[in-house]
Amino acid sequence: MVQQMAQVGKLLIGLWMAGVTIVMFLVIPQYEGLGNAGRIIIMHVPTAWVSVLAFAISAIFSGLYLWKRNPTYDDYAVAAAEGGFLFTALATVTGMIFSQVVWGIYWNWDPRQTSIFVLLLIYAALFALRSAIDDVQRRRQLSAVYSLFAFVTVPFLIFVAPRIADSTLHPNCVFIQGSTCDGITLDVGKIGLLGDRKIQLIALEREGDLVTAEVIVSEPGLSSETTLRPSFNLATGTMADRPEFPGVRYQLGLEYVDPSITSGLLNIEAPGTGVLDNRITLFTFLASIAGFTALFFWMLNLRANLLGLQWALAQRDGGRV
């Protein structure tokens, strides 16, 4: 009975994820400024979420193994770490696709990209460690300890590091509640860094209530320069014209101008702000998170069972794992 229910559950995961894929492409509306590229959020964020969950589960089972010394806990710890690595890689790849469309480049060592790369390296080292130790007991113990230490870095690398970095193009302020893109306040003539672009505020010109900034924006690598003219409405206290950065879909906004018109707050404006305000998008997003989580647990159980079988077969045949 339990097995039949599990089979039905697995079939449901298949249908659920197929449904999420169809809705992602055909039903949810396009994002303002991002077009179809923005749909990737339905895959990108849930895979990143599942990777955090997987690493947490790996750490829990590692702790349980060190406590109880039950080999099954080690199987689950490894299976969860492998799942976490796989989903982190998926989040990285989907992020790179988004990056190519929106930033114009697959990889530019943005703080978010760098931190996820470091995370991948940390868990790749766990697998290297396991494969380097022949003694089974020692391998299990060391990898459990390593896994616990590795998990300590996860919250920092995924949640903290990218948020404390001033210059990130990752659209935290679009998709993640509580995140802010602070921008940079420049005096006229000064140079600063916004995302991965050098900017220089050349002038601020007032015409009635409208203040227009003349900003020279350098491409990453300083290969070329463009002059952009964002503006700010003093009467309403809101941004007016927001020109796009050359070659990408992010805009340069003049968010504030000081009363003496000598300095202005410049910021990257990510298109698609409020993307999850749309009900269909929000529900599809939540459905995707649920689907990926269920898929992960299926994979976790399957992989742990396979590791257990591998061990049982090796024991029977007198071989080594």
Partner: peptide, 12 residues
């Protein structure tokens, strides 16, 4: 968009 969806569904 349909091609992308077909590819994603096939992979899944």
């Amino acid at each position: 968009i349909y091609v992308a969806m077909a590819v994603a569904l096939s992979v899944w």
